[in-house]
């Protein structure tokens, strides 16, 4: 065989092989959904509607980015929905306390406070799982109850509402405003994802996450501080929840005992739909974002079309995670 022939034969094969089905599948699904949506309702494909969908997916998308870290490192965090409600309630109560007179300063302090609270909640999850040596499923099931219960207690079963109209006025644009023509929540998604992708794919910590998620023993024998890597992943999850809180509070200005219910299901679904392996070891941040869009799009299509009741949204999302798992498995077998 001549050299030329060899190279000619080489090229198409390597191109095809570069395409990892698991990485591409969620984007294909997204494209199909867009087509389906356009067929059901002409308003669907409009830029306003799509921007709207993306904006509304921001909370789950940002939380799911954090979940990508936790899941890649081989853990699971069920407490994110409750954590969001708890941190948001704390933040509003902090602003209502009137500890600082100047509304700008007050808001800045509240933002810092929320970020701190999110990180602390994540740290607690991390320590309970690693130091306590409790299965993450059980540990975060426990903290899920704790954060939810605390929220209910803080709100005395009712709602917690931001009282100061000045702060509300300053804060509102963070959710409703736009930057360079893009709604700020979308900008937030992009920035958070870019940072997360950089950390996961281009840094030592990201490599450690993948190693710990693939095989803890190998990681340990390679000199990686396994418990620290896992705990930091939980803290990253807490920080992501805090960022979601920062977007959530200006939207409604209030929280209640039912805030963020079932968001852990949505976040985990987004991660799995995005192609991250639930058993750890392979994280796909952009896939996660795609998964979050898919979830929100499905809801939107259900709303715009009339053939399925929107009250079935939870059912549909639950089905999606099961289907995603089946698809993932069949793709893994083939490759």
């Amino acid at each position: 065989m001549s050299v030329d022939e060899g190279q000619a034969a080489e090229k198409p094969r390597s191109l095809l092989k570069e395409i990892d089905l698991r990485a591409v599948a969620p984007f294909v699904a997204l494209a199909l959904l867009l087509v389906l949506g356009a067929l059901t309702n002409p308003n669907f494909i409009g830029i306003d509607n799509l921007a709207n969908v993306a904006t509304r997916s921001a909370f789950v998308a940002i939380i799911a980015v954090g979940a990508t870290f936790v899941i890649s490192s081989g853990d699971l965090d069920l407490s994110v929905g409750s954590m969001l409600a708890f941190v948001a309630s704390l933040m509003i109560l902090f602003m209502n306390s009137g500890a600082i007179a100047d509304p700008h300063l007050m808001l800045a302090a509240a933002v810092a406070f929320a970020i701190f609270a999110g990180a602390a909640c994540g740290l607690l999850n991390g320590l309970v799982t690693t130091l306590g040596r409790i299965e993450p499923f059980i540990a975060t099931l426990g903290t899920m109850g704790i954060y939810r219960g605390l929220t209910t207690w803080l709100s005395q079963g009712g709602a917690i509402t931001l009282r100061s109209p000045e702060i509300q006025n300053i804060y509102r644009p963070v959710y409703f405003g736009s930057f360079l023509g893009l709604p700020i929540p979308i900008v937030c998604i992009l920035v958070v994802t870019l940072i997360a992708a950089f950390v996961l794919y281009r840094t030592r910590y990201g490599r450690h996450v993948v190693a710990v998620g693939s095989n803890r023993d190998v990681a340990r024998y390679s000199g990686i501080a396994v418990d620290r890597v896992r705990t930091i992943a939980f803290i990253i999850q807490g920080l992501c929840v805090a960022i979601a809180v920062l977007l959530y509070v200006p939207r409604l200005g209030s929280t209640s005992a039912t805030t963020g219910i079932l968001w852990e299901l949505q976040a985990i679904t987004a991660v799995v739909v995005g192609g991250t392996a639930l058993k750890g070891g392979a994280g796909r941040v952009w896939g996660t974002i795609c998964g979050a869009f898919i979830l929100e799009l499905v809801g939107n299509i259900m709303l715009l079309s009339n053939f399925i009741s929107e009250y079935l949204i939870g059912t549909i999302q639950g089905s999606i995670i099961i289907i995603a798992m089946l698809v993932q498995r069949s793709l893994t077998r083939k490759s």
Partner: peptide
Amino acid sequence: LLGSRMAVNLTLQSLDQHGKLGYL
């Protein structure tokens, strides 16, 4: 790490050598 490529395995224990401030 049986599911990872050669390079990932090779450098896993010595990532410090491949960049500054945690960047790889």
